[in-house]
Structures are given as structure tokens and as C-alpha cells.
Amino acid sequence: MTAPAIAYNFAYLDEQTKRMIRRAILKGIAVPGYQVPFASREMPMPYGWGTGGVQVTAACLVPEDRLKVIDQGADDTTNAVSIRRFFQRTAGVAVTEATADATVIQTRHRIPETPLTEGQILVYQVPIPEPLRFLEPRETETRKMHELEEYGLMHVKLYEDIARHGQIATAYAYPVRVEGRYVMDPSPIPKFDNPKLTANPAIQLFGAGREQRIYALPPYAEVVSLDFEDHPFQATKAAHDCDLCGAKVSYLDEVITDDAGGRMFVCSDTDFCAGRRARGLIGRLGGDQKSSKTFANSFQGIWPGTEGAP
């Protein structure tokens, strides 16, 4: 671990800014699913790279925390590495890849497979917090629609999907209704993850830096994915098992292994997958020489001469 840089305050942001963010978080928790405007700061990473999540994490962190950062479910994707390093450098907190050991988890696009527990905080990076944005581009209008609980437009959109495609054609960022009140964008998680949102013992915080919004789900909040009685919500995933650990219930990434249609499916949650393999659970291609970390570089003929090639 690197020593915290002296020039900056703990977790980079100054205390007044953290206080302002914490107030927004508390308001968000008090009004679940409501988008609280906050004075988002310019961070040393670009908008769109998780500045909202980073600010929320910075406001939540205490020196005793153990931080986990994932992107696409993986701890070792470049941006997850970069954000984890940022907090190692500026806050000096312990980091972990184990979901169960983490006190704060910052995520982009996934909810970990391992169920979260009380006392944990899950921080989502959010690009467009407004679930109605692609139906109505104006913020002034969508705020009014939330105020008036005017969500008919969203139901019409879902209905039109069914009329046109026979099903709701939204695969990720699938809209939810929180505690029977606010319609909320769960961030671009696959809809496979939506059922994990509801009655979750952890605190779930959503930060959108560029759009200057924070919203939250308190523990055990009721979160319902929008649907119709005759077209109930369905969580979907690739109809395969993980080729590395054999898991049947985890969300899978599809990896192209050659240019002749070859592919394999692997858990997107690297900690979940590694944990299963450590317990001896092996999938179709999960010989023990492969881990999800090294297998990416292990395709002979396509990516020759890199480390980890078998």
C-alpha cells in the first residue's frame, strides 16, 4: 500500500465538500429513489469514469474501511485498478477483492454475486441518473414528472416494446420503482442484477458526478422492476454455466476465443469465480492452470507470447 499523499485531505476531498456530499446521501436515504442534486466537484479523473461514485465513496470512507472496487464485476479491469489506487494513495485504506471482507464496495455495472450483508455500503457509478431521460430530454420536465408521479410515459414505452418485440426490450439499466414511489435508474447493471436491489441488507448509494445527482436505497428497501401482470419481469443471462468454475447462477461474460466462432462463458464476478475454484469447483474449461486473470492472455495463436500462456 502506498502512503497517503500529504498534499491532499483524507480521501482527497476537503471536509466541507464531504459534509455537503454526506448531507445529500442522508437526504437520499431518507427519500429512497429520489435524485438529490449535489454540487459535484471536478475530480482528477474524467467525468464518465466514475466521478460520482468516487465522490460518494470519498464521503463514506473512514480509515478503518476495507475497500473493494469492481468494474464489469471484475477487480482487475483497468478503471477499477485506477480507482482503487486513487483511494490507496489519497486515503491509505485497506483494499480487498473479497466481497465478504469489504466494508465499502464501489461498482460499475454489476452487483456482486455474493450476497451483501448489514453494515456494507455498495456505491454505484451512474452515467445518466434520470430513468426518464431518453423519453424526455429536459431535466426541467422530468423533475416535474417525478414530482407528480407521472410515470405513464415509461409504461407506454415498455408497452410499445411488448407490442413491437413481444417482450420488454431493455436488457440493462432496467427501471425500477422504489418503495412504491420514485421510478429509479439502477445504473447500467444488467437486469439480471435487478432482483438483488430489493430487500438488500447493505446500504446502496448511487453517485452521478457529471449530472450532479445522488440517490440511495436504505437497507431492506422495496425495489420492484417495472413490468405488467401478463408480462412479468424476467432476469436473464446467457444460457450457459461458467466455463471456469461451473456456476449455473452467476452472470456471464462471453469471451471470443478464436476467429471461427469459438467462445467461452465466464463469471463476470471475478471474486465469486475465484472463490468457487478455490473450493475445488471446476467448470468445462477450468483446469487449475487458468484463472480469470491469466486466461485473458492465454489464447494461443490470437495473442501470442504474453505472460500466462499455458
Binding site: G48, D71, Q72, A171, Y172, P188, T236, K237, A238, L252
Partner: peptide
């Protein structure tokens, strides 16, 4: 920032779209 962020990995979402 928002424009360039689309070069970050999106394979979880893309996978969901693929299945759909």
C-alpha cells in the same frame, strides 16, 4: 469525459444486449 467514457469496458451491458 462522457463522450470518451464509452471506450471503457461495457461488456456486461453488451452481453445483456447480445442475449436480447
Amino acid at each position: 469525459g462522457f463522450l470518451e467514457h464509452i471506450k471503457l469496458p461495457h461488456y456486461v451491458d453488451f452481453q445483456a444486449e447480445l442475449e436480447l
